[in-house]
Design a protein around this nucleic acid. Sequence first.
DNA 1: TTGAAAGCGCTAACAC
DNA 2: GTGTTAGCGCTTTCAA
Lengths: 329, 329
Amino acid sequence: MADVAERAGVSVSTVSRTLRGMSTVSPEARLRVEQAARDLEFVVSRQASSLVTGRTGNVAVLAPTLSSWFVGCVLQGLSTQLSGAGLDLLIYPVAELAERKAFFERLPARRNADALMVLSFDLTEEETARLDGLGMPVVYVSRKVEGRPSVYVDDVAGGRTATRHLLTLGHRRIAYLCGRRSDGFTYSSRQRRTGCLQALAEAGTEPALVREVPHGRRAALEAIGDLTTLSDPPTAVFAETDELALDLLTALREARIQVPDQLSVSGFDDHPVAEWAGLTTVAQDPVSLGTVAGGLVTELIADPDADPAPHRELPLRFIPRASTVSPGR
Amino acid sequence: MADVAERAGVSVSTVSRTLRGMSTVSPEARLRVEQAARDLEFVVSRQASSLVTGRTGNVAVLAPTLSSWFVGCVLQGLSTQLSGAGLDLLIYPVAELAERKAFFERLPARRNADALMVLSFDLTEEETARLDGLGMPVVYVSRKVEGRPSVYVDDVAGGRTATRHLLTLGHRRIAYLCGRRSDGFTYSSRQRRTGCLQALAEAGTEPALVREVPHGRRAALEAIGDLTTLSDPPTAVFAETDELALDLLTALREARIQVPDQLSVSGFDDHPVAEWAGLTTVAQDPVSLGTVAGGLVTELIADPDADPAPHRELPLRFIPRASTVSPGR
DNA sequence: TTGAAAGCGCTAACAC
DNA sequence: GTGTTAGCGCTTTCAA
């Protein structure tokens, strides 16, 4: 920066002010500084400036994975929003329980970011409390947390809607399938299950058969085998996500069980492939989730006196398709 | 850090040395410092230490999108590898040409990261040269660049293999479909097309019909309409990626064109849904791509005297499935 | 093995 | 409007 100052024939303060777009710089000085900075290909060191301002310009994101469609879309929306605000995205994927513990022990984000976004995790009370003490805004995404900034959909209502649809078609024996993960990426899953059980209770039907399915095709196949060999097997299944539902569809084909004639299948998310697969689903828009969360966190960083716990709920939309029909048809 | 020093009854130098694991600290001092740091929940500020060491502990990634399966998997592998080395992932998604230009004008990574990873882009000579002058290791992923560190698959060979398969089945009229993007995320696409054309030339067949398909179902539908109304329509298509192929399958169903009876379709990637869709494809492992690239960049950061342009090629595997059969069957 | 002290590159308060 | 200067929190000589 000293080089730029010298080349422009001004002091470093003027360079600093110019480069931060402050208005207290004369047009001539500004012009010369900008030219000099360009000539020298000068970029301000964030490390140095954050040392004095206390702001890093980074937003940390705690994500359960990077390879799922849902998470990718959320991050996409988030980054679009943040880059507009001049903030960079620092990503901490924590797939394993061990990584998660390590993250909470070291809390590496502590001094390296201006805010933390927590994606989808079903954190413990203790972990949440830990984050409260972090001294920076923490925004929960795809997850409603009382008293903390959150952006989410109503997963309970979504689960209820999908289940009511199956009930309306005439199904009475309904299974709820959720993915099993070691790290507890199951907040939405729990909520959707709650909605499912609520709908069944309302209808006075027997409660859902709940099964956890580890990731992968083999597990899906086993789960299917398990369900169909019951004395009174389900006629419909509601899967936590479309990705799980698609695994199921593959397994069902392998097991030569016709969908929807022998078994109706509903998913959740409206994954791009769901349309092609003719999968009944509850659509949400993860990109918007990210965008809205990004806007929220930007506000919270800029204005520490803002509403400390704003909530934003995004809409769901039920989409019936070919994978669900009346039983015994 | 001063607080820790006081609490442990030592100087800040000793604290610093202890926390960086240097051996020149007496066991007693080390113990006291570690205890004090734990009591105070102290974490060293990266901003401050990088100011003096010149290393930021960040790796910047230039990615075309975050919502594609391929990119998500690469980032997943990358982050696993990097977090093991204590490095954080800073992500710069540049979807639009304008964003890309902005990135290259400001090169925000310049002082904010220890290395840059470039994902899949078909950069211009000028852009590559620009990155050469960045003064940090630049690793190209899913992209072979002569004279620079690169991790990639042989897309030309992959394109050749898929096309030869179609030729062997008896197809003579073959279309190559690639996505169209404003920002030039087309390096692999170009290579695969080259492989496709090579195979056709070898076979002495007429050259491929090449079509660019903007993202989305409507565009896929139009492309299909365009191809099938030709006087001599293709009997097989080879799509740049499975995601594009799946869009095509949806469009073909809408257009009531039977796959594979009326049209064979091959993809590229082995997306998880490809198996369920019965899509013939060329499989690659993007997670490994990320892992290997992460290992490479870690080495380059740690040892500036290492081989300045290591190349790592990862394998491809052809997987024939139900979507490709002999024509006119 | 330890401590004192000199910066790393920048911002912000203050004086001009 | 502009320059001077005192740190921000750390690492790293250099001496002890």
